[in-house]
Design a protein around this nucleic acid. Structure first.
Lengths: 199, 199
DNA sequence: TGTCAACTTTACACAGTGTCAAGCAAAGGA
DNA sequence: TCCTTTGCTTGACACTGTGTAAAGTTGACA
């Protein structure tokens, strides 16, 4: 044990996750998390100095449990560029609903908390690398649309696949998850892949 | 005069706008707005019962000064569907930077304040109607891609043109406003317009 | 038996929103 | 001229949520 009780720390992270998961939008307070974890509010501060750092830890915990990086990396196995693009969209797009609660809390914190903003931007960079890899695969086989440089194409794909867009389509527009994935695949292909290599 | 001093009310709205405009991200407090308007914090509450209602009024004031609805309506003058789509993207896309400060404050409020959420969603519905009109124009001349129903196409266009996407591309990806507009036009065409009628 | 770590309880400082009440100054009747 | 109303000021305070501080409890382990 490096320090503290490892069990309590995990209880906290799980509690935070659970609350963020279904308490959508409503602010999850430190006291709520403590109650959920079955400990005192102050014990929380023994493990995490601030709310922001606790959320960062929660995000890491989630990534760890859910294995995002592995899932994103798996999309690299596809042979053709388009297949790879599809695999990446599927991997990330299906991951979003699993982290949505935590993601939303992070996005809300971005304006007020420097550390949280940094942590979130770091996680989003991982997604960006996935976008860049998919675009590079297209480029390599000449399938990338001549309208976009690889950087521009990555920017577009990254923006397209943002949590905000997922939220809008699923919540505001009432799309199903399946439809979201399929439309994203189609859209990405239309925008990024050159006319000759659409399929 | 219905009540209160109309001059002070406008001073407040202008002050709020100015602060939201360049105080990006940093939270603009009621006391900050009062100071900027040259009145006491309490006088603010004589005009607006809550921060949320003040922001709603600020948004309305902005729309009034900037004439969004007129600008969006102007895009309906275009003859062909694609031209209309372009005109709409240009009108709305160039409006975003002018309201970005206020928009951001609203988006931040969405989770905590019901009234603010409603007001913002109402404003976004206006944009949505513009999207629907542009899509309908495409559909009418058979230029709408067979991949999408009018509703789906509107959803996609609406999502594409969200403030969040503008923010990501301009701030995180470093795009120029001109580039944003041009790429959005191209993207919308690629995604929404059928193969035969791309230009 | 003593000590240490993890946790509890209680209390408080601080920021920001929103409320309340008393006072003040100018405009405009009667 | 006095009186009332309107729009504002000043100052105090309640409430919520975060984060700090300190003293007390409990159980493990040596």
């Amino acid at each position: 044990m490096s320090s503290k009780n490892i069990g309590t720390r995990e209880k906290i992270l799980k509690a935070a996750w659970e609350l963020l998961e279904d308490n959508r939008a409503k602010s999850v307070r430190m006291s709520d998390i403590a109650k959920q974890a079955g400990i005192s509010r102050q014990a929380l501060y023994l493990h995490f100095p601030t709310r922001a750092e606790m959320l960062v830890a929660t995000a890491r915990y989630l990534d760890d449990v859910k294995k995002v990086d592995e899932r994103l990396a798996a999309s690299r196995a596809a042979t053709t560029g388009v297949e790879r693009l599809n695999a990446f969209i599927e991997a990330w797009g299906n991951y979003i609903p699993e982290i949505y609660g935590v993601a939303k809390a992070f996005i809300a914190l971005q304006d007020t908390d420097e550390a949280a903003a940094l942590a979130w931007s770091d996680r989003m960079q991982a997604v960006r690398h996935g976008c860049e890899a998919a675009v590079a695969a297209l480029k390599k086989e000449g399938a990338l649309s001549p309208d976009h440089s690889p950087k521009a194409a990555s920017d577009i794909l990254w923006t397209l696949l943002s949590v905000g867009n997922w939220e809008k389509l699923r919540n505001d527009c009432g799309w199903s998850q399946k439809r979201y994935i399929e439309t994203m695949k189609l859209t990405a292909r239309r925008v990024l892949v050159g006319e000759g290599a659409q399929r």
